[in-house]
Design a protein around this nucleic acid. Structure first.
Lengths: 182, 182
DNA sequence: GTCTATATGACGATAGAC
DNA sequence: GTCTATCGTCATATAGAC
């Protein structure tokens, strides 16, 4: 057996560390030194897996695309409807999908073009699914509400910050979506 | 005459350059060297006006607070209502207010705590005004729509990017706000 | 595969001339 | 007030030992 290519775990550990640092301390502090230290390897060890920082970023974006594809499928299949699913999942709940997404946002903010392109692609997919449910116009309203949730959670510094308040906000947004659905 | 304190123009030019670089190329590239070059002064000249980078950031936040206060007043007085005014002004139109706001967001993204505090204060004021018009629950929906607009414009790289598409989105959001108002 | 050591360059900040 | 020159620090990346 074992003909399937097996993912090296050290590589994933490095990627996890990079992701965590982007989320917790921002792009500027996610240096090769810091990533290596957090992943428990030396800088040289890290650079064996990823020849340079760009390669590490690319790997993160691959991870994001893969998880986003799963998310889109879940959204299409959601029993409560795509809009409600979308709003709920816009609450930064620290799922694997949330984590890559936020980490990648930190890169987009620093004007990393490739990251921005990937975002645009994913958001278009979300919008398409929403439009199927509530029409193209209300789909935009729903999308922007979700984006706003993300934006605020990020500005406040993470899933922990003001969690109860934001939970209440999700309730308000779901109510708004109900009204828009009619 | 001339008893009024007069603002030095070189200082403002430096601040404008800092703001522009934050918007156009991101926090990382807004170095003292780059700011000085863009403002047409030397690095030493820049550091005469602002003893260190933090001082430059503080001045930018002061500018933001001043413009935000004007914005809140305009929002309260808006004939079309606070919500519609808020959505329209969330379109990144490259006004002075938009510019500081986006520039400061770049700082908040890199986990600059003071900037985050200022944001929280301004957003609370917006929310209060919105709540007077549409109630506390719908105020949140409106607020998040506006934030989402900003978030997307920023991810796409500026007021120019996809301008016509985003203009259409504002129309959709205004329609949504109308429905929520009932 | 993972390490240490080091080259190279940028950034923020200081000192002091004009 | 604005400049040039320079220092200390830290980031990315390379070279090569184990």
């Amino acid at each position: 057996m074992d003909t399937m290519p097996r993912k090296p775990i050290a590589r994933d550990a490095v990627l996890d560390a990079f992701e965590a640092l982007l989320i917790e301390v921002g792009e500027r502090a996610a240096t090769l030194d810091a990533v290596a230290k957090r992943a428990g390897v030396s800088k040289g060890g890290l650079l064996y897996h990823f020849p340079n920082k760009e390669a590490m970023i690319s790997a993160l974006l691959e991870r994001m695309d893969a998880l986003a594809a799963l998310d889109i499928e879940a959204m299409k299949a959601a029993p409560e409807g795509a809009s409600a699913f979308f709003i709920k999942s816009s609450l930064w709940a620290d799922t694997p999908m949330d984590r890559v997404f936020v980490a990648a946002t930190r890169l987009a903010e620093v004007a990393h073009e490739e990251t921005r392109r990937r975002f645009a692609g994913i958001q278009q997919q979300w919008l398409d699914v929403l439009a199927e449910e509530v029409g193209p116009e209300m789909a935009r309203a729903v999308r922007y509400m979700g984006d706003g949730l993300y934006f605020n959670a990020m500005l406040e510094g993470g899933p922990g910050a003001n969690a109860s308040e934001r939970n209440a906000d999700v309730g308000a947004l779901l109510a708004a979506v109900e009204r828009l659905r009619d």
